[in-house]
């Protein structure tokens, strides 16, 4: 019974990982870009949401905002920050030779954004963890002796909706076809008339949306936000993405859930200190033994030959 309870908990935990992992896998799948700002965007949504709900708009424009509105603005902040990242990683990027170090330019820029955004948040809001004034996370219901928290069930539902919607977007819509064309072959996509400068920002908007959503869900579910909250989640989401296979959305879903499960089981059997080794070990083993992951394609993320 305890194991089943743990399993349910791990699915709930996994749903946050899934959302962030989908953001990672989307940027890698379409742009072959490992975006290190993703955990920071997640954190930004949570922290901005908290600040608005606790203090209200800056310069005394309003008192504390109700929490759903605050989180909505938090998500908007994440989307705006993500678009800013797009400006400086892709818009102005000129590759001359396409060698391996040049390939890393967006990645390095995103490391720079990680430092800037995270430290700005520290300067603005301090380094301490803050209690998020959301709905009580303790609303639980019991199904056959298994306890589930209602906000978590709602989050899980939202996550499933988002992923299904995203898959539909990529498969059916015009913009989705453009994205897939870029993922296949950026030069050919350009020739076929896909306007990269209009399609690429969509990836970053979706990234911001997913991270913002995950940050908001995290704030509501755990009732606590901090400038460091992105680091742990980022780690687990990357692991989930790799296990599922780079560039595969359903792979990220599966991988995120597997990582949540691994985490819960490791804590259950070995204690909390070994989680890091277990999750990163899982990631390293996947990379070495089956780099394409469970559902991924082998060709993505290999860089230029």
């Amino acid at each position: 019974m305890l194991l089943i309870q743990q399993f349910v908990n791990s699915v709930m935990l996994g749903s946050v990982y899934v959302t962030v992992a989908v953001a990672f896998t989307l940027t890698i799948g379409v742009l072959n870009f490992l975006n290190f700002t993703i955990p920071t965007l997640f954190m930004l949504a949570g922290m901005v949401g908290w600040a608005l709900a606790y203090w209200g708009l800056p310069f005394g424009l309003s008192g504390p905002l109700p929490w759903p509105l605050a989180l909505f603005f938090g998500m908007c902040a994440a989307i705006l920050a993500s678009l800013l990242v797009e400006r400086f990683t892709f818009r102005y990027l000129k590759t001359k030779y396409g060698d391996s170090t040049e390939h890393a330019i967006p990645l390095v820029s995103s490391l720079g954004f990680l430092l800037v955004l995270e430290n700005l948040v520290r300067i603005g809001y301090g380094t301490d963890a803050q209690r998020f004034p959301g709905p009580s996370a303790d609303l639980t219901m019991s199904i056959g002796g298994i306890f589930v928290r209602i906000p978590q069930v709602v989050s899980l539902g939202i996550v499933v909706l988002i992923v299904v919607g995203l898959t539909w977007l990529l498969k059916r819509s015009r913009i989705g076809r453009g994205l897939r064309a870029i993922a296949e072959n950026p030069d050919a996509a350009n020739i076929l008339g896909v306007d990269t400068n209009r399609v690429v920002p969509v990836v970053f908007m979706l990234t911001g949306l997913l991270c913002g959503l995950a940050g908001a869900l995290f704030a509501v579910n755990y009732g606590e936000v901090s400038p460091q909250m992105g680091e742990d989640i980022g780690t687990k989401a990357i692991a989930g993405m790799v296990v599922g296979g780079l560039g595969s959305i359903w792979g990220a879903v599966l991988g995120g859930l597997i990582v949540g499960l691994t985490e819960m089981m490791t804590i259950h059997f070995f204690g909390a200190d070994t989680v890091q080794v277990a999750v990163w070990g899982l990631l390293l083993l996947t990379l070495l033994l089956r780099p394409q992951g469970l559902l991924g394609h082998h060709s993505i993320g290999k860089g230029k030959l």
């Binding site: 890698i28 072959n32 490992l34 391996s100 390939h103 890393a104 990645l107 780690t235 990357i238 692991a239 790799v242 780079l246 890091q276 080794v277 990163w280 070990g281 990631l283 390293l284 990379l287 070495l288 780099p291 993320g301 290999k302 860089g303």
Partner: peptide, 15 residues
Amino acid sequence: RGVYLVLATFAFAEV
């Protein structure tokens, strides 16, 4: 190689 190598080395350090 590429993104995979970055992730693998990163994971190595974490392990």
